[in-house]
């Protein structure tokens, strides 16, 4: 019985961690679907979002809601600006050139944060305090539950947005065929900018939850969740939105379970090993679309 309880607790905290990965992975996968590029700087947007919250709460003394809003706005502006300045001139260039540029942007954000904040750990303000809930002998952490609920709402909202709205339709069209979409009167530039804006907003939320989960932020905080989310996006089939959600959640659960039952040090290795096995069995990821190569 005790084992079952701890298993459920670990599963739920794994789901919560996984939903954070899923939020980040959505940004990766949306940008990949539309701009066909790996945005390596996406992880660092999380770090910027988390620092925005810290600055607004501890230095400016703003209420939590305002801090969260500021963090989202900062990330959206940053994401769109990065796209405009660094990626847009390279839209016709080779994917590798864009990848290296994205790495450059990642270095840029990290070193800028390093200059402003130094390499110290900043403790993340406790802006969300929720009491834990006890359900039939099972104690659930309040923050974990909030993370889970908010990310679920965001993912449903995003699915509806992409499925039902005009802009969502434009996004799907651009990812399918950029040239044809442009001929149908869709502004490709605007659609790509919107995609970056949404991805960055999700990253800001992910930064908030990442900060509350781990409690500490430094300029390099974004790198590892960024890589994990990239893994999650590929795991689910890169370019596929449900795939990113599934991949992120599975990744979080696997990571948490291996931390709890196998080894803390080897948990990353286990996550990566599962990814490799999945990709060897199914080279396009779990929900990826198979594209036939034309001669």
């Amino acid at each position: 019985m005790n084992f079952l309880m701890s298993l459920i607790t670990n599963l739920i905290s794994g789901l919560s961690l996984g939903s954070i990965y899923a939020l980040i992975a959505l940004g990766y996968t949306m940008v990949y679907g539309i701009a066909k590029m790996l945005n390596f700087a996406h992880g660092d947007i999380i770090m910027v979002g988390a620092f925005a919250v810290i600055v607004s709460v501890t230095s400016l003394g703003l209420p939590p809601v305002a801090a969260i809003l500021i963090s989202v706005v900062v990330c959206v502006v940053l994401g769109v600006a990065i796209e405009r300045i660094a990626y847009k001139p390279l839209r016709e260039a080779s994917p590798l050139a864009v990848l290296i540029t994205a790495i450059g942007v990642s270095y840029f954000l990290q070193s800028l944060a390093l200059i402003i904040f130094g390499s110290n750990q900043y403790s993340f303000p406790k802006i969300m305090t929720f009491s834990s809930i006890t359900l039939g002998g099972l104690t659930l952490n309040g923050e974990t539950l909030t993370t889970l609920i908010v990310t679920t709402i965001l993912m449903i909202a995003l699915s509806l947005f992409i499925g039902k709205t005009r802009i969502g339709k434009a996004m799907r069209a651009v990812s399918e065929d950029k040239g044809a979409a442009e001929l149908m009167g869709i502004s490709v530039n605007k659609t790509i900018a919107v995609t970056f804006a949404i991805g960055s907003a999700l990253a800001a939320v992910a930064g908030l939850f990442y900060g509350t989960t781990y409690g500490f932020i430094n300029p390099y905080t974004g790198a590892m969740p960024g890589i994990k989310a990239f893994v999650a996006a590929v795991f689910g089939g890169i370019g596929s939105i449900p795939g990113a959600m599934l991949g992120g959640i599975l990744l979080g659960v696997i990571e948490n379970l291996s931390k709890a039952y196998i080894s803390t040090e080897l948990s990353d290795a286990i996550v990566f090993a599962v990814l490799i096995i999945v990709l060897i069995v199914r080279p396009i990821g779990l929900l990826g679309k198979k594209t036939n190569e034309k001669v």
Binding site: A86, T101, G104, V105, Y107, F108, S111, L112
Partner: peptide, 12 residues
């Protein structure tokens, strides 16, 4: 301190 920043800008 600006070393890595400049390096990143040069790279981009």
């Amino acid at each position: 301190d600006y070393r890595m920043l400049i390096y990143a800008v040069v790279l981009i």
